[in-house]
Design a protein around this nucleic acid. Structure first.
Length: 816
RNA sequence: GGGCGAUUAGCUCAGUGGUAGAGCACUACCUCGACACGGUAGUGGUCACUGGUUCGAAUCCAGUAUCGCCCACCA
C-alpha cells in the first residue's frame, strides 16, 4: 500500500516517491494532492505545500483549539487496516454480505463465588474473534428469561476472564438469543454500553488487523484466521451451539476497500454540536439556499444527527497537525503526552527558545495530518486571503454567490464549508448552492471510477466537439438536479443527444455563413431613425420574438433553469430564426430593387449577434469564433467579456406574433394540401385564400410574395368571402385556419389509395374528437362549473371540427 | 429499518388541472445559392398500476409495483 505509515519513510521521502507514482496512478495522486493545497513544482520535481493555505489551516486549528472545540481523546474510530489510518464516518461504505451468526455458550458462575455452574448463557455474534475482548454480557432488564442472572458472572473462554451480566435496555429481547456479548473496544454500540456501565475496554487488535498480546494464544493471527480458529476451538469445547446463515451489512473503507475495524485509539476530534447548531439556525432563513430545494432537508437532517468529527489521519500527505509534545530524555512516545498547540510561525521561536535556555527536552510535532476535508472546508475564504480579513479579494468576493456541485458532496464538502465559514467569518460562505445531477450510464447506474462504467468524455469530444458535449449535458439537466442518463452507445462511441447538439452547432455555423455571404458592409448593427421606419413586418416580428426570448432566458438563468434556457435558445435559433426569418430574408436579398436591403441586413446581423452572445455560455468556442468573423473583432476582444444583449421594449408586439403564427399555419396547410395531392415542388399551382377578416386580408396581402415562394405556388390569390364564387372551387382541396379558408384547385392527383387511407383515418380521428366535445357540452355540470373560456373554446372546436369533417368528406368524394 | 427521486412515443427526456410535446430513430418526397450534421410532409402514446377528489387528472391525494440513490450501531 502506497503511503503506508508503517514503512515510516518520512514526509519528505513520501513526497519524493509520490512524484514517481504520479504517472502510474493515472493522475489520482496528483489530483488528491492538489485538492488539499499541494502544487506541482516541475523544476524541483516534487510536490510542495502552498504556504498561504497551510497558514490558514494552522490558524483555523488554533482558533478552534482555543475555543475548546478541538480535543484529543481515546475513542473508537473507524480504522482502515489497509491504509492504517482512521477514516471519518463519511468514508465508510456499508456493504451487504452473506455472513454467519454464530451462537455459543458462556459458562455461568455461581453468584457467590467462583463455582462453575452447569448452566450457560448463550450469545450470538457475527464476529466471534472479539469475544477475547468481552467485558460483559448484556440482557434486557425486562427479559424474564434472564432477569435472575443480572449481577451474576460468566466466564469468557480462552482468556478465562470473569465478566458480569448486566442489564441494558438497548438489548432487543427478540433478536438472537436475547443475550449480547459486550466488547467496548471493538464495537461502537458496545462502546456506548461500556460507558454507561463503566466497563473495561480491552483492545485485542493491532493496527494492521492482527491480534495483539491481549488475545493470548491467538496473538499475531490475522483477524479472519483468528475467527476460524476460535470457532473451531469453541466447537471442540462443546460451546458452539448453532451456525446461522445471516445477511448483514459490514462497514468497508472507501479508501482501502477492506472491512473497517472499530478501533480504540488516540485521535483528534472536532466538537460538532455548537458548530452545526449555528448552521441549523442559518438554514432556517435559507442560508444557503439550495437549488433544488429538496436537498435542504438532506443537509439539515445530517446536521441534526452529526457526531464529532475525527479530523486526524495517519497519512503522509496533508496538513500536519500543529501540535507539539514535550518529551524528556527517557520518553519516546507521544501517546500519553499532553500536547500544546502553537500559533502559526511560532514553531521556530519555540525551538530557538528551547535551544537558548539549554532545556534538555525534546519537542516533537504530532505526526498525524488533518483530514483533507478540514482544509477543503476553509477553501471559500482561505483562497481569498483569510485570515487576513482586510485582503481586497476577501473584502470584494466574500461571501461567494453560488456553489455548483453534485449531491454526493453535500456532507463532505458543502456542510463542512458552511460550518467552517460560519465559525471563522460569521458568514455562510455562499448565497446559493446549486446541486446538479450526476451522469448515469446506459444501465442507470451512477458512473464511478471504481465501477469502471464511466464514459471517456474525450471520445465524445473527438467525435462531436466539446461545445456539443457541453450543450448536450446542459440541455439534459432541465429537471433541476435530475440525474442525466446519457444515451451513449458503447460499441459505436456515439450518443444521439450529443449528436443533436453537434448538429445545432453546425446550424449556427451555416446560419452565420449565410449572413456573411449576404453582408454588404462592415457597419455595426445599431439602428438609426431611417432604419426603424423601413422595418418590414417580418423584421418587426423577429425583433419582437428576440426580445421575448432574451428576457425569458435572462429570467430562467436567474432561477438556475439552465436546461430550459438552452432549449429556448435552441428553438428560437433553429425554428424562428433559421427556418422562418432567414427564408424571409432570402426573399429580400434576391429582390434587387429592394430599397430596404440595408435594414434587412442590420436586423439579420443584430439577431444573429444576440443569439451568439446568449448561447455563448452554453457553447463557448464556436460562438466566440463566429462572433469574431461576424463582427470583425480583433482577437483580443472577447465575446466572453461582452454584456448580455439588451432589447428595446418598443419591438415587443404580441398581436404581430399572433398574426405570424396564423401565417405559419396557413403556409403549413398549403404545403400539407400539396403533399396530399402528391404535387412535386416543381409543379406549381395557384392557391386561394378567402376570409371576411379585413385586417387579416391586408396582412396577408403584404406578405403575398413570401407565401408564394414558401409554398412553391404559381400564384396566391386573396379574396374577401363575398367577393368570390365558391362553386368555382368544386374541384379543389381545401382547409381552414380559424377565420381563413384555403382552396387548392387541381387537375390530377396521385397516390389515390394512400390518400384515401389517410383521409379515412383523419375522419375517424375528427369524429372521435367531435364525439368527445359533444359529450362534454351536453354535460350540464360541465356547462355550469367549468370556466366560460373553456366552454367557449369547446364550442369553437366543435364548430371547427364539423367544418373539418365536411372538408374531408368532400375530398373523399372527389377521389371517387 | 428510514428518507428521496424516477416511471410519458422504439430511445433520451420536456410538460404540473382543460384531453399529449421535443430531439434522435422510422416512412415519403426534395441535391432549391447557408446547412443532407439539411428541408418539407408524415407514422408512432390506455402518460407504470389500483383507488379517491373534480364537470374534467399525465398533472392533485392515498396505496401498490419496478428501477435508482442517500442515510442508519440490531449483536
Amino acid at each position: 500500500m502506497k503511503g503506508k505509515k508503517s514503512e515510516d519513510i518520512g514526509r519528505d521521502e513520501f513526497l519524493k516517491r509520490a512524484w514517481t507514482w504520479k504517472e502510474q496512478s493515472g493522475g489520482k495522486i496528483v489530483s488528491q494532492l492538489k485538492r488539499i493545497g499541494y502544487s506541482v513544482d516541475w523544476s524541483r520535481e516534487r510536490f510542495t505545500l502552498d504556504q498561504k493555505l497551510n497558514d490558514a489551516v494552522v490558524e483555523a486549528f488554533n482558533i478552534l483549539y482555543k475555543k475548546n472545540l478541538i480535543y484529543r481523546g481515546e475513542y473508537l474510530v473507524n480504522w482502515c487496516p489497509a491504509s492504517q489510518s482512521a477514516v471519518s464516518d463519511l468514508e465508510v461504505e456499508m456493504q451487504e454480505v452473506n455472513g454467519y451468526l454464530w451462537h455459543f455458550k458462556y459458562p455461568l458462575l455461581s453468584k457467590s463465588g467462583e463455582q462453575l455452574l452447569d448452566k450457560y448463557l448463550e450469545v450470538a455474534t457475527t464476529r466471534p474473534e472479539t469475544l477475547l475482548g468481552d467485558t460483559a454480557v448484556a440482557v434486557n432488564p425486562d427479559d424474564d428469561r434472564y432477569k435472575k442472572y443480572i449481577g451474576a458472572k460468566v466466564k469468557v473462554p480462552f482468556v478465562d476472564r470473569e465478566i458480569p451480566v448486566i442489564a441494558d435496555s438497548h438489548v432487543d429481547k427478540e433478536f438472537g438469543t436475547g443475550c449480547v456479548k459486550v466488547t467496548p473496544a471493538h464495537d461502537p454500540n458496545d462502546f456506548a454500553i461500556g460507558k454507561r456501565h463503566n466497563l473495561k475496554q480491552i483492545n485485542v487488535m493491532n493496527k494492521d488487523g492482527t491480534l495483539n498480546i491481549n488475545a493470548g494464544k491467538f496473538q499475531n493471527l490475522d483477524r479472519y484466521e483468528a475467527r476460524k480458529k476460535i470457532i473451531k476451538e469453541l466447537e471442540n469445547l462443546g460451546l458452539l451451539t448453532k451456525i446461522e446463515e445471516y445477511k448483514h451489512t459490514v462497514p468497508y473503507s472507501d479508501r482501502g476497500k477492506v472491512p473497517i475495524e472499530p478501533l480504540l485509539s488516540t485521535q483528534w476530534f472536532l466538537k460538532m454540536d455548537d458548530i452545526s447548531q449555528g448552521c441549523l439556525e442559518e438554514i432556517d432563513s435559507k442560508k444557503p439556499e439550495f437549488i433544488p430545494q429538496r436537498w435542504e432537508k438532506v443537509y439539515k437532517d445530517w446536521l441534526e444527527n452529526i457526531n464529532d468529527w475525527c479530523i486526524s489521519r495517519q497519512l503522509w500527505w496533508g496538513h500536519q497537525i500543529p501540535a507539539w509534545y514535550v518529551l524528556d530524555e527517557f520518553q519516546d512516545s507521544i501517546e500519553q503526552n499532553t500536547p500544546f498547540v502553537v500559533a502559526r510561525n511560532e514553531e521556530d521561536a519555540l525551538i530557538q527558545a528551547n535551544k537558548k535556555f539549554g532545556f534538555n527536552i525534546k519537542l516533537v510535532r504530532d505526526k498525524d495530518v488533518l483530514d483533507t476535508w478540514f482544509s477543503s472546508g476553509l477553501w471559500p475564504f482561505s483562497t481569498l486571503g483569510w485570515p487576513n480579513n482586510n485582503d481586497p479579494d476577501f473584502k470584494k468576493w466574500y461571501p461567494n454567490s453560488v456553489l455548483v456541485t453534485g449531491f454526493d458532496i453535500i456532507f463532505f464538502w458543502v456542510a463542512r464549508m458552511t460550518m467552517m465559514g460560519n465559525t471563522f467569518t460569521n458568514n455562510i460562505p455562499f448565497k446559493d448552492v446549486y446541486i446538479h445531477g450526476l451522469v448515469r450510464d446506459e444501465n442507470n447506474k451512477k458512473m464511478s471510477k471504481s465501477a469502471g462504467n464511466g464514459i471517456d468524455p474525450i471520445l465524445l469530444i473527438d467525435k462531436y466537439g466539446s461545445d456539443a458535449l457541453r450543450f448536450a449535458l446542459i440541455r439534459e439537466v432541465a429537471g433541476a438536479g435530475q440525474d442525466i442518463r446519457l444515451d451513449f452507445d458503447r460499441k459505436k462511441d456515439t450518443s444521439s443527444t450529443v449528436e443533436a447538439s453537434r448538429n445545432f452547432a453546425n446550424k449556427l455555423w451555416n446560419a452565420t455563413k449565410f449572413v456573411l455571404l449576404n453582408k454588404t458592409s462592415n457597419d455595426n448593427y445599431s439602428f438609426n431613425e431611417s432604419d426603424l421606419n423601413s422595418l418590414e413586418l417580418c423584421d418587426k416580428w423577429i425583433l419582437s420574438k428576440l426580445h421575448q426570448v432574451n428576457t425569458n432566458v435572462a429570467t430562467l438563468l436567474k432561477e438556475y433553469k439552465l436546461g430550459e434556457s438552452a432549449k429556448l435558445l435552441y428553438e428560437f435559433s433553429w425554428n424562428d430564426f433559421c427556418d422562418w426569418y432567414v427564408e424571409f430574408a432570402k426573399q429580400r436579398f434576391n429582390n434587387k430593387e429592394n430599397k430596404n436591403r440595408q435594414t434587412s441586413e442590420k436586423v439579420l446581423i443584430k439577431v444573429l449577434n444576440d443569439i451568439l452572445v446568449m448561447i455563448h455560455p452554453f457553447m463557448p468556442h464556436i460562438t466566440e469564433e463566429l462572433w469574431h468573423v461576424l463582427q470583425l473583432k480583433p482577437e483580443e476582444t472577447l465575446l466572453s467579456l461582452q454584456k448580455w444583449p439588451t432589447q428595446e421594449n418598443k419591438f415587443v408586439d404580441i398581436k404581430l406574433d399572433k398574426s405570424f403564427q396564423q401565417l405559419f399555419e396557413i403556409i403549413r396547410l398549403i404545403r400539407n394540401l400539396r403533399a396530399e395531392l402528391g404535387l412535386k415542388p416543381s409543379e406549381k399551382v395557384p392557391v386561394y385564400l378567402i376570409s371576411d377578416n379585413g385586417d387579416l386580408i391586408d396582412f396577408l396581402k403584404i406578405l403575398v410574395d413570401d407565401i408564394q415562394t414558401l409554398t412553391k405556388s404559381s400564384e396566391v390569390l386573396i379574396y374577401e368571402t363575398n367577393a368570390v364564387d365558391k362553386t368555382e372551387f368544386a374541384k379543389s382541396f381545401s382547409g381552414i385556419i380559424r377565420d381563413l379558408e384555403v382552396y387548392l384547385p387541381f387537375q390530377d392527383y396521385v397516390n389515390i389509395d394512400a390518400l384515401q387511407e389517410r383521409l379515412t383515418k383523419d375522419l375517424q380521428k375528427v369524429n372521435s374528437e367531435l364525439e368527445n366535445l359533444n359529450k362534454r357540452l351536453s354535460n350540464k355540470n360541465f356547462i355550469d362549473k367549468a370556466p366560460k373560456e373553456i366552454v367557449d373554446e369547446c364550442r369553437f372546436k366543435l364548430k371547427e371540427g364539423t367544418t373539418q369533417m365536411e372538408r374531408i368528406n368532400k375530398k373523399l368524394e372527389l377521389l371517387n
